[in-house]
Structures are given as structure tokens and as C-alpha cells.
């Protein structure tokens, strides 16, 4: 939690990093979370700040 907060504090969009807890029997939850995470990251657009520019 501290990690995520500090990332946000530093100006990385909160929706770029996700944490979840899924049991090995919860395949439906797995699919739901993949959808959710993908949608959230898609909405943000490409990561343009915190990235090493290719030399």
C-alpha cells in the first residue's frame, strides 16, 4: 500500500499498477480482473513518463 501511494505521489497514474488476490479455483474472477486491468490501463494510454527511452 505504501508502495502504491508513493508511486502515485511521484506522479505515476494510480491505475497503472494493480494488485489482486485470486484463488486457483476462481477462473471467472481471473477473467473479470484481466478485463478490468486491461480497461484501466487502456484508458490511461501508453506509459510515456516513467520509461527508459530506447537509445
Amino acid at each position: 500500500m505504501l508502495f502504491k501511494n508513493l508511486m502515485e505521489h511521484m506522479g505515476i497514474e494510480p491505475d497503472r499498477v494493480h494488485f489482486s488476490w485470486i484463488s486457483s479455483a476462481e477462473s471467472t474472477k481471473f477473467v473479470d480482473v484481466v478485463n478490468e486491468v486491461t480497461a484501466a490501463v487502456k484508458a490511461l494510454g501508453p506509459n510515456k513518463n516513467f520509461i527508459i527511452k530506447a537509445a
Binding site: 502515485e8 505521489h9 511521484m10 506522479g11 505515476i12 497514474e13 494510480p14 513518463n49
Partner: peptide
Amino acid sequence: IEEMEPDKKYGFF
């Protein structure tokens, strides 16, 4: 700083 928008925070740092 917490009140800033993400882009502004990034610029601040």
C-alpha cells in the same frame, strides 16, 4: 503535492 494532478506531480518531481 497530493492535491496535484498526476502529470503535474510528475513535473514537480
